[in-house]
Design a protein around this nucleic acid. Structure first.
Length: 289
DNA sequence: ACGGTGAACCAAGCGAATAT
DNA sequence: ATATTCGCTTGGTTCACCGT
């Protein structure tokens, strides 16, 4: 019932709501739930009650944690040039011996690992590493028939979100491969998926916590990071009431670009409606124009 | 037929927010 | 300050589906 695209979209929606402050301690408030249900309906034409999103959230988390079991506290992991886990058959056999669930990750990494890392990962996420994995095109073509043409919204969602924001962390950064961006998006998905998995593993194996806490530290000390233009833009895009390139949209961009105080005020409002009202007030434009 | 897998459901328990 | 309520987590189970 859940395709990879749908799962991915859902995870992305959760990140959106998180960004807007509609999720506290993994608990989505009423506005956030409504937004997720609505946007999902808009994108796929399927009405899904919130309960099912919760269940999906659970299963995704289970998958994510399963995968992390494989990589946690484990050194000496190897990768081939494409980023797939490249270890000897013996290595896999041993992993499987201590935990049978490991087998399935050998040839087929978990889909949407990039987003799961953001959603379930421990610490603050700021756009990160140029993730672009969209694992599972092959899987997806087998089932999943009727809504294939509707998923374009997800594509632009991705392209606007994957802008790397590698401030000060870049120096201590991880792998040589993490900076490549999405060329050949269509063709090399499998390769990218492998690469993504490699990135996750590398992050886990190396001192990821150190890096991320460093990030957190920076964010705490520099409010302009947490109220960055990027974040404001993301929130702006997530407002359903604002049509792309409508007068209000254009005016809002200018307003939000203008200075950090504007961004802070904008981001202060906890729900979509008040944000839109604020933008209308601040820019003098109407959403219906 | 069988085992693996993911979706769904359930029970217990916990944390946080709210009410008393 | 304490009690209540709510939703999520955790762990477990059942079921349907798929490939072997």
């Amino acid at each position: 019932t859940w395709s990879d695209e749908q799962t991915r979209f859902f995870l992305q929606l959760r990140l959106d709501e998180n960004l807007k402050g509609n999720i506290r301690k993994q608990m989505v408030n009423e506005a956030g739930r409504q937004a997720i249900v609505d946007k999902f309906y808009e994108a796929f034409g399927i009405k899904i009650p919130w309960r099912k999103f919760g269940i999906k959230y659970n299963t995704c988390k289970k998958q994510y944690e399963s995968f992390k079991k494989l990589t946690r506290n484990r050194t000496g992991l190897g990768f081939d040039s494409t980023g797939f886990i490249n270890m000897s058959e013996d290595w896999w056999n041993e992993r499987c011996k201590e935990w049978p669930g490991a087998r399935k990750f050998k040839d087929k990494p978990v889909a949407n690992m990039d987003l799961m890392e953001k959603v379930f990962g421990t610490v603050y996420i700021s756009g990160g590493e140029g993730w672009s994995a969209q694992q599972g095109e092959d899987v997806l073509d087998t089932k999943h028939s009727e809504h294939d043409d509707e998923i374009d919204g997800e594509d632009d969602a991705e392209s606007r979100r994957d802008i790397p924001t590698e401030e000060a962390v870049g120096s201590k950064n991880v792998g040589p491969s993490s900076s490549r961006s999405k060329v050949n998006k269509k063709r090399s998905r499998a390769v990218q998926a492998g690469q993504a998995v490699a990135d996750v593993i590398r992050e886990s194996v190396e001192s990821r916590d150190k890096i991320l806490s460093h990030k957190n530290h920076l964010i705490e000390n520099h409010p302009e990071f947490s109220c960055s233009e990027l974040r404001a833009m993301e929130v702006l895009h997530s407002l359903p009431a604002i049509r792309m390139w409508s007068p209000l949209y254009k005016a809002s961009i200018n307003h939000v670009k203008q200075d950090a105080a504007n961004r802070q005020t904008f981001l202060f409002y906890g729900d979509d409606e008040n944000r839109v009202l604020y933008l209308e007030y601040a820019t003098g434009e109407s959403r219906d124009a």
